[in-house]
Design a protein around this nucleic acid. Structure first.
Length: 570
RNA sequence: UGGCGGGUAGUUCAACGGCAGAACGCCUGACUUUGGAUCAGGAGAAUGCAGGUUCGAAUCCUGCCCCGCCAGCCA
């Protein structure tokens, strides 16, 4: 251990410490790669980015930046079947939204197809690769099993010239899909399955999203990834734990080739899992395809697009990723932790507004009228964000007929209920004290609450110093603007979806979305920008839909002590 | 079944042979014009199990147990 450690406070030096940073620091100090740090984020353009990718992105870009290096965005586009430019664009867009742009323009593994093919021929010439004409099933069966060695292909020892000739025909499109593959010639006895003569090239007569019909053979992940890293001068190639068993192969290929820069090193870390959600492209695709959710940007999805529409600030996601750190332990973080970062960020930045979700009429019986008998309108001034006085104030109209939240009144309140109830005085946020004098019911439901107000309490405090136990939000009936609000609960009710039955769909929460169509908002809400996130006082944070005016998605609720009390009571 | 990786408060991490800590969650209280925010305090762990080395072990060694990954022409 070096006692001449770097200064704490230096980027990438002190502070966060984990196995990756420890190793990179050692590499830099020992002068490996001339002290250079270069990473890459390598998505396959066959789907949308999700919260799991966010962790990888924060790591790939974050570590490079901490150590004065850079991170490439490289699309791992070696499989023409599933990939599309649509995803390329979406990924670039989502990455930028998260707050990251690569120093270089986006790179593509498909840019290296020529070099890869050249290197493959070199391996054939040296007897390190051969063309196998058996079908996939046979090759798979010959691979053997755990604790059982594989069987060598009858083509394994064919002359170099024959493989060269066959590979040429593969490349020229003379051979049919699946008729043969190029395999690395390594060791069919190896305990590492990936070393049992892995496939390097397969034939696909398919149109690639970038190279079109130029190629008919496509490299596999294993043959493309490390070599792409080497071509780009990547020093640290970070990936998730399931690639751990590929590392010997990653290294084997690199050992056989003349590397233009230094030698990249693959290191693995645990992928991010969250409770009550799924983070696998396949699972997410199923939810979209089956219509369980409305699309890839459904606010209930952990896709970056979904989270964006839901109102998650990118800064909160980044801070969450930094906070959870990195380890090699398979782990599932509580979704509540992510939400706490969202609240923290939004509490500091979101402007407050008053919105009533389930309106109940409150009539102030002693409210003054003008000469023509119409109720007076009083404009009260309230801060936009009490956490940030610099954010100014706004004016909210108040009159004698108001909407209040239905649950803020109870005719027969349970213990510890502090809100409106017959005989009790509460504060209307920013306006006046009101005292409940009665209520009216229709068909057993409370339809109107009657109150008197104290004109001396304007602004919300009493000159005589008397206190109230609670403050409720309100909206003037005459000035209210209608809005629609979508309330969200967990998409999956189980902490680990599918744990019990193996199918996450069995744990779907049928009530994951509740649409409220009769919400009433203070006038200022009409001026909300698309995508803007507000705090609806006492309720939570709500994001204005980017496309549908007047639709708000609940990003996350406020901490709710009262709900907690009720829950404890059962 | 062979190989590899991993097991520390409820959860996620830290502690790198020297007093097991933090955050989130939970509980108490203070404060408060959001039952929010903020502040203070508290409960909560024989570090998977069993041995061993050592003055001293979460940390080193041995054996066992449990979890994850690997037998695609996916990545």
């Amino acid at each position: 251990m070096s006692d001449a450690g770097p200064d704490p406070g230096e980027p990438g030096a002190g502070g966060a410490r984990d196995f990756l940073r420890d190793e990179i620091r050692r590499d830099v100090e020992s002068g490996l790669d001339g002290g250079r740090v270069q990473t890459r984020f390598p998505p396959e353009p066959n789907g949308y980015l999700h919260i799991g990718h966010a962790k990888a992105i924060c790591l790939d870009f974050g570590l490079a930046e901490e150590f004065g290096g850079s991170c490439n965005l490289r699309f791992d586009d070696t499989n023409p079947d599933a990939e599309d430019t649509e995803y390329v664009e979406a990924i670039i867009e989502d990455l930028a939204w998260l707050g990251f742009t690569s120093a270089r323009p986006p790179l593509f593994a498909s840019d290296y197809f020529g070099q890869l093919a050249e290197w493959a021929e070199s391996l054939i010439e040296r007897g390190l690769a051969y063309v196998d004409e058996q079908d996939g099933e046979t090759i798979s069966a010959q691979r053997g099993g755990f604790g059982r060695p594989g069987i060598e292909s009858p083509h394994r020892d064919r002359p170099v010239g024959e493989s060269l000739e066959l590979f040429g025909r593969m490349r020229r499109g003379e051979l049919a899909d699946g008729s043969c593959v190029l395999r690395a010639r390594i060791d069919m006895q190896s305990d590492v399955m990936q070393l049992r003569d892995p496939v390097m090239y397969r034939i696909r007569h398919a149109t690639h999203h970038r190279t079109g019909d130029e190629w008919v053979v496509y490299p596999t992940y294993d043959w493309a990834h490390g070599q792409s890293d080497a071509i780009e001068g990547v020093t640290h190639s970070l990936c998730t734990l399931e690639f751990d068993s590929h590392r010997p192969l990653y290294d084997w290929f690199l050992d056989q080739l003349p590397l233009p820069h230094g030698r990249p090193r693959q290191r693995e870390f645990a992928r991010l899992e969250l409770t009550h959600t799924v983070t696998s492209k396949r699972r997410l695709a199923t939810l979209v395809a089956d219509g369980v959710v409305d699309g890839w940007d459904d606010p209930r999805l952990p896709t970056l697009r979904g989270l964006r529409r839901r109102g998650y600030p990118p800064a909160a996601i980044r801070e969450f990723c930094d906070f959870i750190g990195v380890a090699r332990t398979n782990s599932r973080h509580e979704i509540e932790l992510l939400e706490s970062f969202v609240r923290r960020e939004l509490n500091a930045t979101a402007q407050r507004r008053m919105v009533v979700l389930r309106p109940l009429l409150l009539t102030i019986t002693n409210w003054p009228v003008d000469d023509e008998g119409s109720p007076l309108v009083v404009d009260v001034e309230v801060p936009n964000n009490p956490e940030d006085p610099g954010d100014g104030t706004r004016s909210v109209p108040c009159s004698g007929r108001l909407w209040i939240e239905a649950e803020d009144f109870m005719a027969e309140p349970p213990p510890r209920y502090h809100r409106l109830t017959p005989g009790r005085e509460v504060r209307l946020r920013g306006a006046f004290y009101v005292t409940c004098t009665g209520f009216r019911e229709e068909a057993g439901r409370v339809v109107e609450v009657e109150c008197t107000y104290d004109p001396a309490t304007r602004g919300g405090s009493a000159p005589d110093g008397r206190k109230v136990k609670s403050t409720i939000h309100w909206v003037s009936v005459e000035h209210a603007v209608p809005v629609q609000v979508a309330l969200y609960e967990r998409l999956f009710s189980a902490e680990v979806p599918g744990e019990a039955t193996g199918d996450p769909l069995d744990d779907l929460n049928p009530d994951s979305r509740e649409l409220l169509d009769h919400c009433r908002a203070e006038p200022e809400v009409a001026a909300t920008e698309p995508g803007q996130v507000l705090q609806f006082e006492r309720l939570g944070y709500f994001a204005h839909d980017p496309r549908i005016p007047g639709l708000f998605h609940r990003t996350v609720g406020l901490r709710d002590e009262w709900a907690n009390i009720q829950k404890r009571r059962g």
